[in-house]
């Protein structure tokens, strides 16, 4: 591990903890995820939090339907996934669009800035057009000091205005994997 990754790792831990606190301040109580290194802090915090449900999914589309069910019952959910998982959600997003469910997802990106694994590019580069084609508004966070502002804006758009919003946590933010 080189020094650049180390320094990125330190600042990453800080914004990820702030991000968890932000989600909890806005009454998000259902955390659905397919395990991913980019969301490790959020996942671990949700597992340790007795006031939330931490729900490991077998495929990301389950988390889209979970969010719809949470809303029907008056609760708020977030879907944490990697960019590859966006492709698994496409038809399920018709549930969100058709019924105008509020929807918030945080997407840790691969196949983008500095990616070293060619397999990741097809889906990574398709994330934004695919989400937008299904009516999801796409926001991006590139730097640690803008994460809270961007996700805060997404929370307002989703849960006050009933929109469907994805925040891409880019590889400039979380660090590109060299493999």
């Amino acid at each position: 591990m080189d020094a650049k990754v180390d320094s990125k790792g330190a600042s990453q831990a800080s914004w990820q903890h702030d991000l968890y606190d932000l989600l909890r301040r806005h009454d998000i109580t259902q955390f659905g995820y397919v395990p991913d290194a980019g969301h490790a802090v959020l996942i671990d915090r949700s597992l340790a939090d007795p006031d939330v449900y931490s729900i490991a999914l077998t495929t990301e589309e389950e988390g889209v339907a979970l969010a719809a069910g949470a809303d029907l019952g008056g609760a708020r959910a977030v879907l944490l996934m990697q960019s590859s998982g966006v492709g698994n959600c496409i038809n399920m997003l018709s549930l969100i669009k058709g019924a105008r469910f509020p929807f918030l997802t945080l997407v840790s990106m691969r196949g983008d800035f500095g990616e070293g694994n060619p397999w990741q590019f097809a889906m990574g580069q398709a994330v934004t057009p695919v989400l937008e084609a299904m009516g999801v508004i796409v926001l991006r966070a590139e730097h640690p000091d803008e994460v809270i502002e961007v996700v805060g804006a997404a929370i307002t758009m989703a849960f006050k205005s009933g929109q469907s919003v994805a925040v891409l946590l880019t590889q400039r933010l979380i660090g590109a994997k060299p493999f």
Binding site: Q30, G63, V64, L66, G69, G74, M92, G98
Partner: peptide
């Protein structure tokens, strides 16, 4: 709540709803 599309969704909608409404 009946679906007209989004095949494969009902069980997970049920889970989200069950967690949101533990007394129902």
């Amino acid at each position: 709540f009946s679906l007209g599309g989004a095949m494969g969704a009902p069980c997970m909608i049920g889970l989200g709803l069950a967690l949101a409404q533990p007394k129902k």
